[in-house]
Simulated scan of single mutants.
Amino acid sequence: MEQKKALKIVEKQLTKKRYDHTVRVMETALDLAAHYELDTKKVELAAIFHDYAKYRNPEEMKRWIIEEKLPQDLLDYHPELWHGPVGSKMIEREIGIGDPEIQSAIYWHTTGKRNMSLFEQVIFIADYIEPGRDFPGVDEVREVVYKDIDQACWTAARNTIQFLMSKNQPIYPDTFQLYNEKLGRNMNGR
């Protein structure tokens, strides 16, 4: 699917602010994909559709979680986490994008997980560092992402965990697993 067509599809699903974010995520992901020698067309599609389900009604997303047999523990967490897993299924059913690599990157772009592929890491971190983001710790991640994407993912996970803890919010277990895995790599000096 061509970029223009994909952006037109996703624009209908998003607010203007979120659409602008999506364009910046796409541009950031394409830069990272070129740097890390990934398939830029696939990265482009994953970045464009990463927030496809972001503004769907929580009840609709809940139905998708149940009907698509997504992990039921998602229902124990804030609906904000649902749009990745649900979006990974919606793009297949509603748009016809069934590429497992694209779907997986969309699925994990919010929480991360252990053993993320380089492709998944690029979408995860592009969403985190796109130029419109401005929060404590984002510049630290931007500084290392082109040198060590594992370090960037660990730092992003650490920052997310610290932020959620400061707000007394629950943290999805896969984010802890990402943090622990990358911490082990960092401590062992890879």
Rank of each mutant, 00 (worst) to 15 (best):
V138C: 01
V43P: 05
D99Q: 07
K42A: 03
A126C: 04
I65L: 03
A157G: 01
I123P: 06
M90W: 13
C153A: 15
I129P: 00
Q169W: 14
Y146S: 13
F49P: 00
H78Q: 09
I97T: 09
E120K: 02
N159D: 14
I106A: 07
I65N: 06
E68A: 08
E59Y: 04
R114P: 00
I97Y: 05
I48Q: 06
I95S: 12
G96D: 01
K147E: 14
M61W: 11
P136T: 10
A46F: 12
T160Q: 13
R93I: 09
P136E: 12
G96R: 08
E140M: 12
E120I: 07
T111G: 12
R63S: 14
I95H: 04
W108N: 01
W154R: 05
A105E: 10
Q162E: 15
D150G: 01
D39S: 08
E80V: 14
K69E: 15
S117A: 00
I65E: 07
Q169F: 13
Q121K: 15
S104I: 01
K54S: 13
I129L: 03
W82Y: 03
E68P: 01
I66T: 08
I102E: 03
D148Q: 04
L74D: 07
V144D: 02
Q162F: 09
I123M: 13
E94L: 06
L75F: 03
R56T: 10
E67Q: 02
N57F: 05
V122Y: 08
D139Q: 09
K147A: 14
G132F: 11
Q151A: 15
L74F: 06
M116L: 15
I125T: 14
E80Q: 12
V144Y: 01
I97K: 00
Y77G: 01
R142P: 02
D127C: 13
R142G: 05
I123T: 04
L70Y: 02
L81C: 13
D139Y: 03
K69I: 11
E101Y: 01
K167M: 11
S166G: 06
K89C: 05
A152F: 04
Y55H: 15
N159V: 12
R56L: 15
T160P: 02
L75K: 00
D39V: 04
A105L: 04
E143T: 03
R158S: 14
Y77M: 10
S117C: 08
R142L: 00
A157Y: 00
P85T: 13
W64A: 02
K42Y: 06
F119Q: 01
S104R: 02
I66W: 08
F49I: 12
W82G: 00
Y77Q: 08
G87H: 01
S88F: 05
S117R: 07
Q151R: 15
D51H: 09
K54L: 15
A105K: 04
M90R: 15
D76M: 11
M90E: 14
T40W: 06
A152Q: 02
E59T: 05
A152I: 07
Q72A: 15
L81G: 13
W154T: 07
N159C: 10
T110Y: 13
D148V: 06
K113C: 10
K89A: 09
K147L: 15
D99W: 07
E120H: 05
F163W: 12
C153K: 05
A152K: 06
G132Q: 07
R158I: 10
I125K: 02
Q103E: 14
V86E: 03
H78C: 11
Q151G: 12
I102A: 01
E68T: 05
A152W: 06
V122K: 11
D73T: 05
D76Y: 12
E80T: 03
K69D: 14
